[in-house]
């Protein structure tokens, strides 16, 4: 009975949404944002339109996004029990897993660096690179490689906040020196974006790994 009502409601909603999606997709978009971005791409300091939008034209959204991530990371880590954040014991004696980690972790670090650099002229960027960094960290935790930098301390605090605070600093300096909030100096926009993206990558990697560590199963902690 209940499942039947839910099915009917879902079908009804789907039936209403489908024509709307088709109508939106087939509508004339007017001034194409794509051409607008392409004409201004040279002024942005990077060659890839997506990075130009994320880090320059709509940098405000990215600033708020990393702000939300920092708050989520700090909240998640402070809610975790103290035992969860401690260094894990060597969890497995599986030689294959260790060999795999030894091959994969350096490759993942290299891939993260490449993704970060690629963001200036092709698909890539801080969020993807940060996620790969975090995945490398997860692998290190799982195989019991030392991850002292994620333990509570100055390294963790600095890592969590570096991306957001430097981004905010650049934005505020822009406002204080007479340009708009978040407006980069025209000649420095390329290097500034690279610096912000690098720190964002480190921060995002640390926040995501921190959330993983905070949520990890408590082996022996409460059993």
């Amino acid at each position: 009975m209940k499942a039947g009502v839910v099915t009917v409601l879902a079908l009804l909603l789907g039936g209403i949404l489908a024509p709307v999606v088709v109508a939106v997709a087939s509508a004339d978009p007017g001034t194409s944002l794509h051409t607008l971005v392409q004409t201004r791409l040279e002024a942005s300091g990077v060659e890839h339109p997506v990075t130009a939008v994320l880090l320059n034209f709509r940098a405000y959204d990215t600033l708020l996004e990393i702000g939300v991530l920092v708050v989520a990371g700090i909240t998640g880590m402070s809610l975790s029990r103290a035992g969860a954040r401690a260094e894990p014991e060597l969890r497995s004696t599986n030689t294959l897993l260790h060999a795999l980690a030894r091959w994969f972790v350096p490759l993942m670090l290299l891939l993260a660096a490449w993704l970060l650099w690629a963001g200036s002229h092709r698909p890539g960027g801080a969020f993807q690179a940060g996620a790969v960094l975090a995945a490398a960290g997860v692998m290190m935790r799982l195989t019991g490689l030392p991850t002292a930098w994620i333990a509570p301390g100055p390294m963790l605090r600095l890592g969590l906040s570096a991306g957001f605070s430097v981004f905010l600093l650049v934005a505020a300096v822009g406002a204080l020196t007479g340009r708009a909030f978040l407006a980069y100096p025209p000649l420095l926009s390329g290097p500034l974006i690279l610096v912000i993206e690098t720190l964002l990558t480190l921060s995002i990697g640390m926040i995501l790994l921190g959330l993983y560590v905070a949520a990890a199963q408590r082996d022996g902690a409460d059993e």
Partner: peptide, 21 residues
């Protein structure tokens, strides 16, 4: 491709790990 990278890394990878946890 940008979205594809983000989806594979964050959507499938990290969210999957957190859900498994």
């Amino acid at each position: 491709p940008d979205l594809a990278l983000a989806e594979a890394a964050i959507g499938a990878g990290l969210t999957g790990v957190l859900l498994l946890d």
